[in-house]
Design a binder for these strands. Structure first.
Length: 650
RNA sequence: GGGGCGGUAGCUCAAUUGGUUAGAGUACCGGACUGUCGAUCCGGUGGUUGCGGGUUCGAGUCCCGUCCGCCUCGCCA
C-alpha cells in the first residue's frame, strides 16, 4: 500500500519530494512543496508544474471539483512562487503520459492550496529567467547575461541544470572522501591565515591588527603544511581545500578554487598514482550513477574509466603530441623528421641543423623538424585553411606551416606525386623521404614545421595537431570519452626567463630528482629528470604532484642551483628546512583541481558552472558587491591606508 | 597591462546610408477558456539605447573618453 511506504524526504511540512512521485504512489494522499516552474491556466482548470531539487511533478487544480481552491488563490499563481498543496496522486490517461519526465506517469489532484511564499506585486518581473525555462532558453542560445545571473545567483541556482551540476560535484567529492577514508587517509585542516607558499603567483594578503605592518597570506595551496604533516607522522593525508591566487582570471580560473590535496609517506610515484587512479575511477563511477537516467551515453563513458591509467613520459608526449598534456581521444601522431630535413636544402636544413648555446657554454643541436600526417584530408583543407594555420603557431614565433598534399601514388614524380607549399625545396627525394617517415599515402595531407629550437617546433606542431583535430571534429567526436593519462619524467629545471643563464623549477623546488640523473644536477641541470607527474584528461591538466625531497642536504643543494641565497632560503622556507633536520620520511603527493574536474565531468566549459557562488573575470561578486571599500576607521585599526583613493562607484 | 566581441523594455534580440512616435518574442497586468505540458486566443503596461562629452538641422547608429561583462594573450600549475 502506497501510504505505508514513508518517503525519506518527508518533513513536518511535506510528505514527499516532487521528483520521487511515480506509479507506485497511485491513490496516495500527499502533501507537496515546491516552486512554480510553469503554469497552464485554462480558467477553471489549471495545471502547474511544481519543481524541487528532486524533479518536477504536474499538479492539477480543478476549480469545478474543488471550489475552495478559487478562494485560496489558485488563479493568481505566478511563476517561482512557493506552494504547498495537498491532494491525491492519480495515473494520467495514456495519451497524456510524459515519458521524458520521471514523474510523467502521474499527476496530483489538488484539494488544498497554501502559498508558502508569494512574489510581491511590486516585483513585476523576475530579474532573470529561472527554472526550466532558463535551461530551455539557454539550449536555444538565449543565455542570460552572466553578470545578472551572478547578481541574482540565488535565482539562477534554481535552474535544474545548475542544481544538477552542483549535486554532481557533491557526488564526486563524496566519492573522493569515502575512497580516501577507506584507504586510511586522514582529513586534516591546514591554516588559511598563513605565510606565502612557493607557487609563485600573487598572494591575497590579510592585514594583522595585532602586528602593525604584518600580513598573513592566504594559501595558494597547502603544499608546505602537508609536507610538515608527513614530518609529523600522518603518513596518509588528504583534504578538499580552498586555495587562493591573485592572478587574472579565465573561464577555468577563479581567485579561490578547490583542490583535492593529498600526501603520503614511505612511497614512490607508483603508490601515489595508484591511490589517485582509484579515487578518480571511483569519482567517475559515482558521476556515472548520477547521470545514468538522464544521459546514458555519458554515463557509459564514465563507467568505462578504469585504473590503471596510461603513462607517457614528458619526452614522448612532447614528441608525439607536442604537449605535456596530450589529448589522446584521437590518434594524429607527430613524427620527428629532423633527419630527413637535414638532408634537404634551404630553411628546412637550416632549422634542422641549427645549434644553440646552452647555459654553461655548451653547444647542442637545438633545431628540429616535425611532421603531422592527416589521413585522407588533402581535400578537406583549402588553401585558405592551410594559410590560416600560420595564426595558430604565430604565438610560438613561427611564421607558417608548410604543407604537402599527396595526390599521386608512389612512383609518380613532382606535381603528379604531391602539391606542396615548399616549392622548389620539395625535391622528389625529400618528398619521398618525408612520406616514408610519416607513412603518407595518396589523399593524405602532411603538415611540416621546422624551427631552430626543438621545443618550439614540437609545441607549435602540438597546437597544429589540436587545431586540425578541432576542424575535423575529432576532439568531441565521442563526447563521452574520457582519456586519462599520466605524464611522467618531467625535467626538474627549466631556463629561468628572468635570469639569464639561471634555472627555475619546472614545478616547485621540493620535487625530488630521479636518482639515475643525480650526477647531472650541477653539470647538466636541464637534462635532469624529476619525480614529478601530471594527471591529464582529454588534453587538460587536472593536477600535478611529485615525490618530494626529504633531506635538508639535497633541499639546500637544489635551492643553491636555483640561486636562492642562504638568507632567502631561511626566510621563506626556514621552518621546512628545520623540520627536515629532525627527520623527514620519504614522501610524495599530488593536488587535483576539483572545479576543473567537475566541469569536465559536467561537460561545461566554465568552472563558474560548478561553483555555487563564483566571481567575475575581475574577481568581483555582483551579488555581495565584494570587494568593497573599507572605512577609514577599520583600515586604521589594521594599521594600513589605501595609497590611491577608490574611484566613485557609478 | 594588451587584443577581440558585446552593453537597446525585467530577460533574449531587431532597428536599412545618420532621418517619422525605437520594434518583436517572452515575462508581467486585464479578459476569454475543463486535459494542458514553453497551453492557446484577444487587449494592455513597460525605454535616461551602460555613463560622460563631441559632430550634426537631426545620433541607438559617427567621433573621443570612461565603466562593466565575456573570450583571449601576458600572468597563472
Amino acid at each position: 500500500m502506497a501510504q505505508s511506504e514513508e518517503s525519506s524526504f518527508r518533513t513536518t511540512i511535506r510528505s514527499h519530494a516532487l521528483g520521487e512521485l511515480g506509479k507506485k504512489h497511485e491513490g496516495a494522499q500527499v502533501t507537496l512543496c515546491g516552486w512554480v516552474d510553469r503554469r497552464r491556466d485554462h480558467g477553471s482548470l489549471i495545471f502547474v508544474d511544481l519543481r524541487d531539487r528532486y524533479g518536477i511533478a504536474q499538479i492539477v487544480l480543478d476549480l469545478a471539483c474543488h471550489p475552495g481552491l478559487e478562494k485560496q488563490g489558485a488563479s493568481t499563481i505566478r511563476i517561482e512562487e512557493i506552494l504547498k498543496v495537498q491532494g491525491k496522486v492519480r495515473l494520467r490517461d495514456a495519451e497524456s503520459v510524459r515519458k521524458e519526465n520521471p514523474t510523467g506517469e502521474v499527476e496530483v489532484e489538488v484539494s488544498d492550496l497554501v502559498f508558502l511564499a508569494r512574489v510581491p506585486q511590486d516585483v513585476k518581473n523576475l530579474p532573470v529567467p529561472t527554472g526550466t525555462s532558463a535551461d530551455v532558453d539557454a539550449k536555444k542560445g538565449k543565455e542570460t547575461d552572466e553578470e545578472v545571473r551572478m547578481q541574482f545567483r540565488y535565482l539562477d541556482l534554481r535552474r535544474p541544470s545548475l542544481q544538477q551540476r552542483i549535486m554532481l560535484r557533491h557526488r564526486i567529492c563524496s566519492a573522493f572522501r569515502s575512497w580516501f577514508d577507506s584507504r586510511g587517509f586522514v582529513d586534516v585542516e591546514t591554516p588559511f591565515l598563513t605565510k606565502s607558499t612557493p607557487e609563485g603567483s600573487r598572494d591575497y594578503l590579510v592585514p594583522s591588527r595585532i602586528h602593525p605592518g604584518h600580513f598573513y597570506a592566504l594559501p595558494q595551496s597547502p603544499q608546505l603544511f602537508k609536507q610538515l604533516l608527513m614530518v609529523g607522522g600522518f603518513d596518509r593525508y588528504y583534504q578538499i581545500v580552498r586555495c587562493f591566487r591573485d592572478e587574472d582570471l579565465r573561464k577555468d580560473r577563479q581567485p579561490e578554487f578547490t583542490q583535492l590535496d593529498l600526501e603520503m609517506t614511505f612511497v614512490t610515484e607508483e603508490d601515489v598514482l595508484r591511490e589517485v587512479e582509484g579515487a578518480v575511477e571511483a569519482a567517475c563511477h559515482a558521476a556515472a550513477s548520477v547521470l545514468e537516467p538522464s544521459e546514458p551515453a555519458r554515463a557509459k563513458g564514465l563507467r568505462a574509466v578504469k585504473a590503471p591509467f596510461r603513462r607517457i613520459t614528458f619526452q614522448e608526449a612532447l614528441l608525439k603530441y607536442g604537449s605535456d598534456k596530450p589529448d589522446l581521444r584521437f590518434a594524429l601522431e607527430i613524427v620527428d623528421v629532423t633527419a630527413e630535413c637535414a638532408k634537404a636544402e634551404g630553411f628546412l636544413k637550416e632549422a634542422a641543423t641549427a645549434t644553440r648555446t646552452l647555459p654553461g657554454g655548451k653547444a647542442a643541436l637545438g633545431g628540429a623538424a616535425r611532421a603531422l600526417r592527416v589521413p585522407e584530408s588533402a581535400e578537406k583543407f583549402s588553401r585558405k585553411d592551410l594559410d590560416s594555420l600560420a595564426s595558430v603557431v604565430s604565438d610560438k614565433g613561427i611564421k607558417g606551416v608548410a604543407w604537402l598534399k599527396v595526390v599521386g601514388e608512389k612512383g609518380a614524380k613532382g606535381k603528379d606525386r604531391a602539391q606542396t607549399s615548399l616549392g622548389k625545396l620539395a625535391t622528389d627525394e625529400l618528398v619521398e623521404a618525408l612520406l616514408a617517415a610519416v607513412g603518407g599515402v595518396k589523399g593524405d595531407l602532411v603538415l611540416l614545421i621546422a624551427n631552430q629550437k626543438e621545443r618550439t617546433a614540437a609545441e607549435a606542431m602540438g597546437l597544429v595537431r589540436l587545431h586540425v583535430a578541432e576542424k575535423l571534429g575529432l576532439r568531441e567526436k565521442e563526447p563521452a570519452r574520457m582519456e586519462f593519462v599520466w605524464a611522467v619524467e618531467f625535467p626538474l629545471f627549466c631556463e629561468d626567463p628572468n635570469r639569464e643563464g639561471g634555472y627555475a623549477p619546472e614545478s616547485h623546488p621540493f620535487t625530488d630528482p630521479r636518482p639515475e640523473d643525480m650526477d647531472k644536477l650541477e653539470s647538466d641541470p636541464l637534462l635532469v629528470r624529476s619525480r614529478h607527474y601530471d594527471l591529464v584528461l582529454n588534453g587538460t591538466e587536472l593536477g600535478s604532484g611529485s615525490v618530494r625531497i626529504h633531506t635538508p642536504e639535497l633541499q639546500k643543494r637544489i635551492f643553491g642551483i636555483l640561486g636562492l641565497s642562504e638568507e632567502v632560503q631561511k626566510r621563506r622556507f626556514g621552518f621546512l628546512l628545520s623540520a627536515f633536520r629532525y627527520g623527514a620520511p620519504p614522501h610524495g603527493g599530488i593536488a587535483l583541481g576539483v572545479d576543473r574536474f567537475c566541469a569536465m565531468l559536467s561537460k561545461t566549459p566554465s568552472i563558474r558552472d560548478v561553483i555555487a557562488f563564483p566571481k567575475t573575470n575581475r574577481a568581483t561578486d555582483p551579488m555581495t558587491d565584494a570587494p568593497s571599500i573599507a572605512e577609514a576607521e577599520q583600515l586604521g585599526e589594521l594599521h594600513i591606508q589605501a595609497c590611491s583613493p577608490p574611484p566613485p562607484k557609478p
